[in-house]
Amino acid sequence: MIRVRFFTILRLLVKRADVILDRRGISVRDLLDDAQRAVPVPFLHKVLDDEGKMKRGTLILVNGRHVQHLDGLDTIIEDGDEVSLFPPGGGG
């Protein structure tokens, strides 16, 4: 099982704190597509741009590590992994 967690404005948008998906060996990109199908409101437009690249403003963390330091959206997610979508607060 893979847990996709939504934080802050994404959680408000999809009205869910997380989704649990029965997947393994799946890329972040495909996992996000599957996660979108599992929630009542689309959210990918907040995370990816029209070309499918990561948008500024939302962190995609795999087990607490930014995917940019892994293989980006091609990072392979395995059973038991946790993916967090978190738009960090920038203000002080």
């Binding site: 500024r56 403003g57 962190l59 930014h66 940019q68 738009p87 960090p88 607060g89 920038g90």
Partner: peptide, 14 residues
């Protein structure tokens, strides 16, 4: 490392 260049930084955050 955590925020890399994906973090936005618009001035005057609500």
């Amino acid at each position: 490392e955590l925020y890399s260049d994906t973090a936005s930084s618009a001035p005057g955050v609500s």
